[in-house]
């Protein structure tokens, strides 16, 4: 029996094939398959090809269930760059791949918890609208926590 294959299309129109039984680890894809059989190409307009390649690599893993936790942790650890991790986390959120989303978000959280305020802004693309006085007031209020 030949395994059914799905085709996923990234934001930049690159096509990726993946066996259906692996692709449906994504709840989003599983629902699409259920609804219309998903015989045609599945477009993923928010996921770029670099990130989709990573997601496919993750979905294709051949891990024993008991080693899966370690695998996903190592998988995101090896992609320690914040911009890559953010893309991966967003894709995992969109595609509803829980373990990958958990691991990617956890990795970003671990990295930013030791950052300075300015580094947090840069990492999370947040514009600074606090005055130095406000920063100091908040710092003073929670002195014991720092």
């Amino acid at each position: 029996m030949s395994k059914k294959t799905l085709t996923l299309m990234s934001k930049d129109k690159q096509l990726f094939n993946i066996e259906e039984h692996l692709a449906v680890q994504s709840v989003t894809i599983r629902n699409m398959v259920k609804e219309d059989g998903a015989s045609s190409v599945i477009p993923l307009p928010r996921v770029d090809s670099e990130t989709l390649a990573l997601v496919i690599e993750y979905l294709n893993r051949q891990q024993a269930p008991e080693e899966d936790e370690d695998y996903v942790k190592k998988f995101v650890d090896e992609r320690g760059e914040i911009p890559t991790l953010l893309e991966l986390a967003q894709a995992a959120l969109d595609l509803d791949i829980k373990k990958l989303m958990d691991a990617a978000c956890m990795k970003v959280a671990d990295l930013i918890k030791d950052f300075t305020l300015e580094e947090v802004r840069e990492a999370l693309r947040i514009e600074n609208d606090r005055t130095p006085e406000e920063e100091k007031a908040i710092r003073d209020e929670f002195q014991w926590a720092f």
Partner: peptide, 16 residues
């Protein structure tokens, strides 16, 4: 996933 201690500090990152 960030500890509360760190979030307290992050309140000054921005108003939003």
């Amino acid at each position: 996933r960030v500890p509360a201690r760190t979030l307290a500090q992050m309140r000054s990152v921005s108003r939003p």
